[in-house]
Design a protein around this nucleic acid. Structure first.
Lengths: 328, 328
DNA sequence: GATGGCATTTGCAACGTGGCAAAGGCCAGT
DNA sequence: ACTGGCCTTTGCCACGTTGCAAATGCCATC
């Protein structure tokens, strides 16, 4: 059996409370006592029991990070950073994977974790804003990357509209005239996709180009396979685009592969811009031009919001920048 | 305040214990009572308090997955699968990221998590076998992907030697004669790298080729950047290889990029084989030939071992297969 | 109508910890 | 020597839950 406070107390010849004081680095413990107790702790290999501590303190030190998929590189990178930042603040991250399933998202949102976590960082995929509003759970919540303003919830976002406009504008500035947008979501729940589409359209309008419905390409998910499939269709269509703004790097990498399959030269005949700046895109051939959100900053800001909950919901915007590489 | 059992009990006019019985689906609860209590539970929005439950039951339902990096695609994919399998078994996975830091690994190994988890799935990087043996913690432990047989611990592995031999043999069968191995670890702690090197050498020996130290390429980490750098060095060397067996897909993807940088045609002038079968490699140009470990199976087996701990340490081998694509 | 047995409900206690506040001990200043 | 004050240690209890076993109630059977 794992030793508990009482065992240490007996071993050191002090009261349970004193051991607790040592463990919690209480100020008023005589150096000699502290030393003796510490020796007993080491000797017995005592570790605080988290359950008991949590029950007593009312806090767990755990934060849930709810994301659609761990193995999607953007989320993996975001998760890695979140874990690092959280650890630096004495928090532990519990990663929940929803597979984009709205039902599971709702479940987690309404506190299925039952007091297991002190806060939730939530990167929604299929869940509607209304669902957020109807939340009864009291656990602090911060939304990542979704914001249509309706839900009265803290959130960290990047300026998706501006970023999409820059990306599309960059393609247009390079002389492209048939620029497609890939990543449109059939169900319009997804605020991020909507905003990127809006930015794309704004850039077209600025350049005096008409919006062509054929060039607004819907995909089921945002994976490489989806990008690959959609790009093949585009390239096989009567009037293929000369550039594509992809809503994620994964889509862009799939599209890049499709271009290779069809023998279309990138960037000569087809320019591509992605979104997320994931590691893969830096090493692809050719390397991917992309919008790079500041993931470290996102993680930091999200944990800031979570640990300093305020009365009124806040919206924080993390920086992004366009990274031009070889696909454009 | 979140309602507790007592609140529900009062609301439903039954004892606390009966509510607990309903929550835990105890057999002997009258249907009418069950219904009434359930109504109260729903009305008040009761959620069991995990800390109290854990304290009482002695189990948390949490399993730690300790990996070097979440955002390395192999680990990300493994983590995603582990989370799914665990969930199907009513377990929640807590992901710990060590950044390959031996100290942190040791810390986690010795139970820093203090009863927070019921078991640990551990994918070591820098920690020595001796460290494992000296473990005092009693939490069930399963090792992933490391096995030099010395540590008396359950583990799930693939047959790295055989896999490396197949991969290298495949390159040799394709007529390559200067086959390099990339991914050798300077410190020899890493059993996986050692085994893959052994398999590589075995294949060379089988083909009657001498082992050339110049072709056994060490790298600091196993990332794309390391593969890129190492490959550039190889290509710039007096006698570059005509094929490289990379110990991870990430290295291979970096190498692929390096080949493009130097204008070396893959697979014509240079063949590449990776290891891990990560998603990126399926969409790279050209698509990566790789050793594909059965990650689903690894996750399942690991949780099997963890939940059915035995007296004697067991070694389980998960299947793998060589997936030939375009780089060889 | 009494008895036995089973279905259902309940009270008590304990899991290991930390908040609280009081008790104890020591020393300096008067 | 006495007092006051501060440093140090301590006991008691509650956090919310469930294991245990006993208590209650009901019905069929004799």
């Amino acid at each position: 059996m794992t030793p508990k406070l009482r065992d240490v107390a007996e071993h050191a010849g002090v009261s349970v409370r004193t051991v607790s004081n040592v463990v919690n680095e209480f100020r008023y413990v005589a150096p000699a006592t502290r030393e003796r107790v510490q020796a007993s702790i080491d000797a017995l290999g005592y570790r605080p029991n988290m359950a008991a501590r949590t029950l007593r303190r009312g806090r767990t030190g755990l934060v849930a990070l709810v994301i659609p998929e761990i193995d999607s590189p953007y989320y993996a990178e975001l998760a890695a950073r979140t874990v690092r930042v959280a650890e630096a603040r004495g928090l532990t991250v519990l990663i929940d994977q929803t597979d984009g399933d709205a039902e599971r998202e709702t479940e987690l949102l309404h506190g299925r974790r039952g007091q297991l976590v002190d806060g939730v960082l939530f990167s929604p995929w299929g869940v509607a804003a209304a669902e957020l509003a109807s939340r009864t759970d009291t656990v602090p919540l911060v939304l990542l990357g979704e914001h249509d303003g309706t839900a009265g919830v803290d959130h960290v976002v990047i300026d998706n509209v501006a970023a999409a406009r820059e990306a599309t504008g960059h393609l247009l500035a390079g002389g492209r005239r048939r620029v497609a947008a890939m990543g449109v979501q059939p169900r319009s729940l997804n605020a991020t996709a909507r905003q990127r589409l809006a930015g794309y359209r704004a850039a077209l309008a600025e350049a005096g180009l008409p919006a062509d419905p054929e060039l607004e390409v819907p995909v089921r998910r945002l994976h490489r396979a989806d990008g690959h499939e959609a790009m093949l269709r585009l390239l096989d269509s009567p009037r293929p685009p000369d550039a594509v703004f992809c809503f994620t790097d994964e889509l862009a990498l799939g599209a890049l592969r499709a271009a290779a399959d069809r023998g279309v030269a990138v960037p000569e005949s087809l320019a591509l811009v992605g979104f997320d700046d994931v590691e893969d895109g830096r090493f692809s051939v050719p390397a991917l031009t992309t919008v790079s959100p500041d993931k470290d900053r996102i993680a930091e800001l999200a944990l800031d919001l979570l640990t300093h909950q305020a009365d009124a919901p806040r919206s924080v915007i993390a920086p992004h920048r366009l990274v031009v590489r070889e696909t454009s």
